[in-house]
Design a protein around this nucleic acid. Structure first.
Lengths: 240, 240
DNA sequence: GAGTGGTCTAGACCACACA
DNA sequence: GTGTGGTCTAGACCACTCC
């Protein structure tokens, strides 16, 4: 009657791993024992082990990398969605990370569909596109697709390989970006997105769609960003 | 060599259900076929069926309710995290929902631990606490725990059963709340939290911690809110 | 009582990673 | 080649819901 219910066994494993993390016996980015090792240690079936690991993954405590295994999550990059200016490089350095990014592809294209609507331009208007990945301390954390109005920044593309995009726009074109619209959605990473960051399909992620104005109020940039969910923390501080 | 890889079978089921949703053959809040029905229809094992359903759940397309089954998600409440004022009742009505809330428990307590730190008051300072759930169109979507500085609003608790909390503070105490700090985190709902909203453990959720000032700049309220992840959409629009 | 979702076992085969 | 995670099967028992 008043008996305590049996706790599910996956909770035992989950708590064990949380303890390892709490006590520092698993350092950030350290690999966990293999799933089969855990089945032996806890006399559990591999399905049950994977159930426990999946829960920890969705809580952001651990993450998977490729097919290489499960790893303890690192420190989160704190990100303020209420700020109108966003500069990954500066933000990360301020928080003690070593950020890096790599352009995977860039070029010109013509506006159609959603992009045409968002930019509010005629179909066929020329856009620059940039696909890149970014990392913190050597660990890949995001994949993004940026789109710019080509006419406002001729010769833009070669410059961004080595300099932060916001710096190039400010210094070379006197364009200051202001975030106008921000959409945030927790997602499962689709195969293609995940593969760019070296993650397995269905890794938990956070998606951002940003629409940015120039100081003249014109929409000049649209970003789609896909972040590893455990790599960031969303926190707004209001100054008023 | 150039052969297409076999698609995983759970993807077949996943896409089938997405099609049902897209075509409107599953209306919002309509129950899906039982897991065992789906195993028969698709000649799949129940584990595989549950895998597919879990992915759809984490994408916010479907949700579970109690042990009653899986349901198609409804329309999302659009929520702007950059706004300093938040009023669930008004926000929901403006978007065509019929909101409701229910106070589960309320009373007085003394500040300790994190609450004492957040309020920045002496240990033992009297606080009001209110635990409540909220629903949209009859479907429970959040559970929250509010804490107030008791001294600024004597006689507060009986009033909030029937009136929105922000209205009571404004009309009866001339207190206007300003969001000062906002923390957003995707979570798995823990057993206790989930049970308040009639959800099973590990339902995907979004957690908010809000710290609110009065117009005098004093911290007067701290909220912890747990939302069903599929019930809201985060979107900021900047007016500048 | 029949059916539901939640938990769990004991296997299996595959593609891929690493040594 | 050995071990890894990803996918999948064929069962089982339980607590709970609904009729």
């Amino acid at each position: 009657m008043g008996e305590r219910k049996e706790k599910p066994q996956y909770l035992t494993l989950k708590r064990f791993i949380l303890e390892l993390l709490r006590k520092g016996k698993l350092s950030p980015h350290e690999k966990l024992p293999s799933e089969r090792d855990l089945t032996k240690q806890f006399a559990l079936n591999r399905n049950t082990v994977r159930h426990a690991l999946g829960i920890l993954e969705r809580e952001g405590k651990i993450y998977r990398s490729g097919r290489k295994g499960w790893f303890a999550s690192g420190q989160r990059l704190v990100f303020d969605p209420s700020k109108e200016h966003v500069n990954f490089d500066k933000l990360a350095r301020k928080q003690g990370f070593t950020p890096a990014w790599q352009v995977l592809e860039s070029g010109t294209m013509q506006a159609t569909g959603e992009l045409q609507e968002l930019f509010n331009v005629e179909e066929g208007t020329e856009l620059f596109h940039v696909f890149e990945t970014g990392s913190l301390d050597g660990h890949q954390v995001y994949y993004s697709e940026y789109f710019f109005l080509a006419e406002i920044c001729p010769g833009f593309l070669p410059k961004i390989v080595s300099r932060p995009m916001t710096d190039v726009l400010r210094e070379d074109y006197s364009i200051h970006l202001y975030q106008k619209d921000l959409l945030i959605r927790p997602i499962n990473m689709e195969e293609e997105t995940a593969s760019h960051i070296g993650l397995p399909t269905h890794s938990p992620g956070i998606f951002f769609r940003r629409i940015k104005n120039s100081q003249q109020g014109r929409i000049v940039q649209v970003d789609y960003e896909y972040w590893r969910a455990d790599s960031i923390e969303l926190r707004s501080t209001f100054s008023s």
